[in-house]
């Protein structure tokens, strides 16, 4: 049997052990079957919004886009000689890496209205996730950009290329090879952290699992279902990341 075949066998064995272990809890599978369509978002909420897995995905995808943009800008600020940009970037990353995501979420959802704007739950969730992860992602971009040999910058500058073009055409393409793996890891982590957004009452996976658990007094079924759903999403994310990584095969001389 090939290596892959043997690994697959190991996985199947471990899955079987896991299933046996779970089966020993005497779970009410009918409850799971009942609530699964809601967790999977196959029905809209009474107010007509998406819920469950699609909502989780929506929050994550939006936050992924914004956090990447924020992270890139913060990295540029951190690398620049401009005191304003540097100060802003370092302050931002320090605060948002130094405080818990839950606190940030609460500050935005409950605290922001005191200053005027009242964010809805979805924007608050996306903003909190983006700001928090943008701070971590900025370090990933910074490390990747700095890892590109200085000679590349020198050669591009010597050709008379403007700085934005040097970044876009020379530095970033080479930095991306180093950036994609840790970036992917951040996104997978974000997927799990999105469960915190249940605290502001968004009907994503965790919120639904907890509320069904509470109402039926059957937490184990609901939490395990939620766990499996997150796990499956993570597996899909990892597969996508592996495909993307495969597109950066160019080695450096």
């Amino acid at each position: 049997m090939s290596f892959k075949g043997k690994v697959f066998l190991v996985w199947m064995l471990l899955a079987a052990c896991f299933a046996a272990f779970v089966a020993s809890f005497d779970l009410k599978l009918s409850l799971i079957a009942d609530k699964l369509p809601f967790l999977l978002g196959l029905h809209l909420t009474p107010n007509g919004f998406i819920q469950g897995l699609p909502l989780t995905l929506f929050l994550c995808l939006a936050a992924m886009v914004f956090s990447t943009i924020l992270g890139f800008l913060a990295a540029l600020g951190r690398l620049s000689g401009n005191p304003l940009a540097y100060g802003l970037a370092t302050f931002y990353t320090s605060f948002f890496r130094g405080t818990p995501l839950l606190v940030q979420l609460m500050l935005i959802y409950l605290g922001l209205p005191q200053l005027g704007p009242v964010p809805g739950a979805v924007p608050a969730g996306i903003i909190a996730l983006s700001l928090c992860y943008g701070a971590y992602i900025s370090e990933i971009f910074r490390a990747g950009i700095q890892a590109v040999p200085n000679g590349q910058r020198e050669a591009a500058a010597a050709l008379g290329l403007p700085r934005w073009l040097v970044m876009y055409k020379v530095i970033l393409p080479q930095a991306l090879k180093l950036i994609v793996p840790p970036l992917g890891a951040q996104f997978i982590s974000m997927l799990k952290d999105s469960s915190l957004v249940s605290m502001v009452g968004l009907w994503e996976i965790m919120f639904l699992a907890q509320s069904y658990g509470r109402s039926s007094y059957r937490y184990m079924e609901m939490l395990l279902t939620a766990a499996v759903l997150y796990w499956l999403l993570s597996i899909v994310f990892e597969a996508i990341q592996a495909r993307i990584e495969a597109r950066f095969p160019q080695g450096r001389h």
Binding site: G151, P173, Q174
Partner: peptide, 20 residues
């Protein structure tokens, strides 16, 4: 600076070709 650099070409010890 950009204008000056366009008229001055430079060749480096480590070549510094863009590998991608």
């Amino acid at each position: 600076l950009e204008l000056i650099r366009r008229d001055v070409g430079m060749v480096f010890q480590q070549f510094n070709l863009f590998p991608h």
